[in-house]
Design a protein around this nucleic acid. Sequence first.
DNA 1: AAAACGATTCGACAGATATAGAAGTATAGA
DNA 2: TCTATACTTCTATATCTGTCGAATCGTTTT
Lengths: 104, 104
Amino acid sequence: MDIKKTAKIFKALSNSNRLELYLKIAEAYETGFETGGECCVADIMGCLNIGAPTISHHIKELANADLITTEKRGKFLICRINEQLVAEVGKMLVLNRLDKNPIR
Amino acid sequence: MDIKKTAKIFKALSNSNRLELYLKIAEAYETGFETGGECCVADIMGCLNIGAPTISHHIKELANADLITTEKRGKFLICRINEQLVAEVGKMLVLNRLDKNPIR
DNA sequence: AAAACGATTCGACAGATATAGAAGTATAGA
DNA sequence: TCTATACTTCTATATCTGTCGAATCGTTTT
């Protein structure tokens, strides 16, 4: 993955409210068996202390960084985690020094 | 780990140059057997197209997020990865839905 | 002691960001 | 069809950020 895209991903997670937003979606994704792991904006607005326009803006940023995907269903916006990308980023972060230099 | 601290870590990695800086340090850390995995600012200045004051500033941000530790040795500043924190963040990012919901 | 070197601090500034309020759009329900 | 709901768009603003040049500091070399 290229540096600019990676930085963009981190930037999307660099704001407390946006990170919390992301974690809420991830949580719904992990626990949501029946619901299919979905999460809509109104659910979130209650927990976070920010207005709807701001949430809308944040969601767009998360989607723009490919961290989530969105889908309009009726009047709701459904958010889902982009599982693959998240896994990729997670791997990239972790050092593998110990594998290369087993003695240290 | 608390949300604010986590957001701060991501913010530290959210700028291309700073991320590259971090990766350079990580690289030195991974390959640096003889050197002890250290890395000084002057080494970096060559690769990145930014001035010394900016690098100094970026390093402080990385250190402030606990991603790296620094140590003054003579006129050099030595940077090292905070291996433990990085591993922690990496883990936090990864979803564990599959473990919880093995059927899906 | 003087010069060179590596890094830091300060001040400035253009550009980005988070947020809100007001108004708008589209869908759902009565 | 009217109203309510869920979300978006637009606009404005206060704050934050990345970067630089100039000056400075501490260490090493000559």
